[in-house]
Design a binder for these strands. Structure first.
Lengths: 179, 179
DNA sequence: GCCGTCTACGCAACTAGTTGCATAGCAACG
DNA sequence: CGTTGCTATGCAACTAGTTGCGTAGACGGC
């Protein structure tokens, strides 16, 4: 579904090999849409048959050849078409929420330890995002048009992580109050 | 992965047929873990082979027979074991974020229309959750132990929806400022 | 009397994504 | 000189979840 389009967006910004894409999906775009390299290669193959992308082999010194993909006109059309269709609202899906709900049937202390770990992870992620924002968008009041999307996505990540942390705090407080 | 455990939690609270579970997954638990009835029946079958649940047929008047499932001792053990293993931190996965990031390659106005739709959906969900909180937990300062988990999950939902709405507002503002 | 909806269960075919493995040359470390 | 790690691509087998369909009786509305 969206992996195709995430790849199209990424290739529209800059051509890349499957390997390059896999690295991008470990960073920037990947913070909001994960993909393994296996999945990327699989989907790239399909996208090439669909003529959304095209590839050419590039020989390199001291490194394996690579297949560099670029987006086609059809790929850009698809991106346009896709952007004009409303995105289905994806329901939350949290294994942790299930566990929290079932705390009474489980190991309370383990769940609380888990909450603390998650809180720390949110905190670290905020620091990472903030640093990234500082570095790439030091002045958010004057963004180039081509930066706006990525900046807003980063903002979404920051907001979500703050919320995650606030939730953890609320959980810890509630359990401490109960004890 | 988690569907099994969501079902175990649900059955630990109260025995149910596959159909009952499907309805619960359309409401309460389902707000944080969706599942179709097909998937539920499939997983219930596996769980019965694994001895985590057991079923017996119940005949009904004017209605089809139903298979009522209940959790077994082994099922409760599994729930305990699962709760003591840290939950892997699930990365966000948002098709909408991908689209937002690619706005420059798409239909800007359509994306903004989408944002407005999503904002309204968040607003509606907040109203729904708040009503649910009011009804089930009118006094959050004194919750029974068996209510705490479900309450905190609901709180998580409320926090997440508020964040979703705030993000939409930020996006709308940024695009309006740009124009 | 037909149509839609609800209860209740399930199979079959498909798609998306994960896990494990394979290949292969080069560079850096000890 | 062996091990680890990076670049680079991909297949095979599996799991989870979706979509579409089928069955079947009861109830209510028009």
């Amino acid at each position: 579904m969206a992996l195709e389009h995430a790849i199209l967006v990424s290739l529209a910004e800059k051509t890349a090999s499957g390997y390059d894409l896999a690295r991008r999906f470990d960073a920037s775009i990947g913070h909001f849409w994960k993909a393994s390299h296996q999945q990327i290669y699989k989907v790239l193959g399909r996208m090439e048959s669909d003529k959304w992308v095209e590839s050419h082999l590039v020989a390199q010194d001291n490194r394996p050849d690579k297949k560099v993909y670029s987006i086609t006109g059809e790929g850009r059309d698809e991106l346009m078409r896709w952007s004009s269709v409303p995105t289905p609202i994806e329901p939350l899906r949290s294994e942790f929420a299930v566990k929290l709900r079932g705390t009474q049937f489980g190991d309370r202390d383990a769940v609380l330890a888990d909450v603390r770990v998650r809180r720390a992870a949110h905190e670290a992620q905020i620091a990472y995002y903030e640093a990234s924002a500082q570095r790439h968008y030091p002045d958010p009041s004057s963004l180039r048009e081509d930066e706006l999307g990525a900046y807003l996505v980063l903002r979404g990540g920051i907001l979500a992580e703050h919320t995650g942390m606030a939730w953890c705090d609320e959980i810890l407080q509630a359990f401490e109050a109960e004890r």
